[in-house]
Design a binder for these strands. Structure first.
Lengths: 118, 118
DNA sequence: TTAATATGTCACTATATAGTGACATATTAT
DNA sequence: ATAATATGTCACTATATAGTGACATATTAA
């Protein structure tokens, strides 16, 4: 199945690939053009990198700003801080969730985690 | 390709699945038997849960202790603390890695991150 | 011993994902 | 206008992954 509609899953899935994490690492210093990022990965082609950037964009881990024919890719750490940060912290400190949360997690794990009450 | 030989990747891949994160959540309170964990997931079968537990075991996110015919699954937060913690912290605070590290990351991303000098 | 319980293993299916090559479009330089 | 640059899109292939049903094994209860 693996139908996940919430942003949480998108973020974790995006971060599960080593190359995508490397791309994010390379953006900490500052934005890079797409071509520049491509040149950082000699082992895969341009379209491959493009698809990784698409994944990062869809999970909002990068934002994009066009300047002429150049596309500038900016890192956006907000999803990391919002999604992974709390989860990792909770597990490092062994903090238990409420039984109700756990039940929801297990039963419909695609939607997972705390959801907006919208 | 996606041949990853280091533990780092195993951890991120393991955590990329919502059900596996839910299993880990359920273990914060304390160890559970395999059958107990299975009963937490009505949407998938026993073998499905077993495979998730295998993934968690291979990434050392759980440890196992047998007691008669019962297998007790214990959470092990060490890989989270060792692998995800620093990465997440670094990104939340926007801390740059050395250029050499970045180059290594990009060129042979399968092995990724800092490796044992062994 | 026999049956029930709890778990392990395996081959299989279906979907997801990484990666590619070919082609298309937009922008800048000559 | 023409060429070079930078990026976007698409169909395709190969592998990885989630999940299943059937069967096997080990342990406890009757």
């Amino acid at each position: 199945m693996t139908y996940y509609t919430n942003i949480q899953d998108h973020v974790w899935k995006a971060l599960s690939d080593a190359k995508r994490r490397a791309i994010l690492d390379s953006l900490i210093k500052g934005p890079r053009s797409t071509g520049d990022i491509v040149s950082l990965f000699p082992t895969i082609g341009r379209t491959g990198v493009l698809k990784h950037l698409d994944v990062l964009k869809n999970s909002e881990l990068i934002t994009i700003k066009r300047e002429g024919r150049t596309r500038w890719n900016y890192i956006n750490p907000a999803p990391i801080a919002a999604v992974c940060g709390p989860w990792v912290t909770r597990h490092i400190h062994g903090i238990t969730q409420s039984a109700a949360d756990l039940k929801a997690l297990a039963e419909n794990s695609p939607s997972e985690e705390k959801q907006d009450p919208s």
